[in-house]
Write a protein that binds this DNA or RNA. Structure first.
Lengths: 107, 107
DNA sequence: CGTGTAAGGAATTCTGACACG
DNA sequence: CGTGTAAGGAATTCTGACACG
């Protein structure tokens, strides 16, 4: 109904204590993963970290990787890789769209 | 992906300061509307109020009503009324489903 | 490297109350 | 009735550091 929904999952509104409860991680761990550039909370005016549901999901993925013994460094590397692949995929899709468009016009 | 999504909007994870920022209402107002049974935050173990995105939406509707000069009492009354109507509507739908089912079986 | 913890301070939240109207 | 505010206390969060390994 109210149209501001699209990004509910991305809104940074959850503070670290709640994230702790949601993920089962310690605050120390959550802050550390930020230090290692795995997670990027927003900050309230007074400097308090605010997380989104997306961030919470991400933290749970990180927790899984860590359990498997993967180092934060590796997690970050893999993440960036997938990010790049995703971008390329989007580019290809766009290309396809454009070609399809011209094809249609020629018929 | 992670299957716990359905209720993202209902998860009580936002504390009152953030709700204040999101709605523009004062904390006093937010607590008062709770006192008047218009909103029902959860409580953390230590007694801190936690709101959902749904609650935030609701608060914005309340704010609109209040601006129009409607009393909390009236808002509550109207709300309960709509709730009841909604329940009846669901019952009717269910009835329809059942009838359709039997009809199909007879053919 | 990843995480626990004690330390000190700042910001948040809570309740009950007085105020105005 | 609806809301502001000062009051005192409890819970939360923050950072930088020491510890272990």
């Amino acid at each position: 109904m109210t149209q501001e929904d699209p990004s509910l999952k991305e809104r940074k509104v959850i503070s670290i204590g709640t994230v702790r409860d949601l993920t089962g991680l310690s605050e120390r761990q959550i802050r550390y993963y930020e230090e290692r550039k795995l997670i990027f909370p927003a900050r309230s005016g007074s400097g308090i970290r605010k997380y989104s549901f997306s961030d919470v999901e991400r933290l749970m993925e990180i927790a899984n990787q860590m359990e498997e013994g993967v180092q934060t460094h590796e997690i970050r590397r893999e993440w960036k890789k997938k990010e790049k692949e995703n971008e390329n995929w989007k580019k290809q899709m766009l290309k396809g769209q454009i070609q399809a468009h011209f094809k249609q016009n020629r018929n």
